[in-house]
Design a protein around this nucleic acid. Sequence first.
DNA 1: TTTTGTTTACGAAACTTTTCGTATGTTTGT
DNA 2: ACAAACATACGAAAAGTTTCGTAAACAAAA
Lengths: 136, 136
Amino acid sequence: MFVYEINRRQMQNRKITDSELEILQILWANGPSTVRTIHESLGTEKQTGYTTTLKLMQIMFEKGLLTRDASSRTHIYAAAISEQSGKQQALDKIIDSVFKGSPTKLVMQALGGYQPSTQEIDAIKAYLDELQKQNP
Amino acid sequence: MFVYEINRRQMQNRKITDSELEILQILWANGPSTVRTIHESLGTEKQTGYTTTLKLMQIMFEKGLLTRDASSRTHIYAAAISEQSGKQQALDKIIDSVFKGSPTKLVMQALGGYQPSTQEIDAIKAYLDELQKQNP
DNA sequence: TTTTGTTTACGAAACTTTTCGTATGTTTGT
DNA sequence: ACAAACATACGAAAAGTTTCGTAAACAAAA
């Protein structure tokens, strides 16, 4: 039986840190996980101890970034926000702060800075056609 | 006579913070400026004192993010990195951390999350055509 | 049962970023 | 000349993030 706790006493307006984003990403990719699993997924690059990961996830729970099932001794954590909205949030922030609120500007810069391949360009064009069809 | 100081003893690998990015942005928009000017540009939103802005810019100078002309009492600061590369840096970071290194993924998410207008779509398409011409 | 290992909770150190107060010197206006 | 305003430098408090050590509870193994 799963009983996901949700912490509603969130310290709201603190932004998501890079370490937190790393953990969210693993949860998005693998689904609900234990601290141990997450810690091992971080493993190679990060040289930090287990309790560090634990503490971080506890704090994220307090912030409302994660929920957790504490019905068994080994808690199982899940991302409280969807991959979609998490990524969009990250984008929004940069669009707002760096690209004067214009997603188009960001897209241009991203494309200009990277020399996408012909295949990629075609993929994006196809996607644009899709959008245009939906939005006449 | 302008004599821009450049601090070469940079603490390298610290990343650019949000506050720092705000200041860079103003410098990119307005060109070299005094601390007072920057502080007033930040003005309305930020409720922080003048010396806070000063200190921030001094630290940015130490980090090598800004250069400055100290030939007159009122120093004049300039961004040490170009608008282009600063914005690209910001983008790189998020592409790397959130979009598995794929700029195309970021572009898709940005476009999908925003319902761009027909004009914007056309502008992006035109831009893609440009890229495709250069890259046969 | 006793030992060994795993898990959470928690406090606090270490580090970074943001903020400000104060000292000191320069410029400006009266 | 003198006061008021302004500029830099600097130390340090305040706030936030990351890290770890240790204690307590439980589980598994010997």
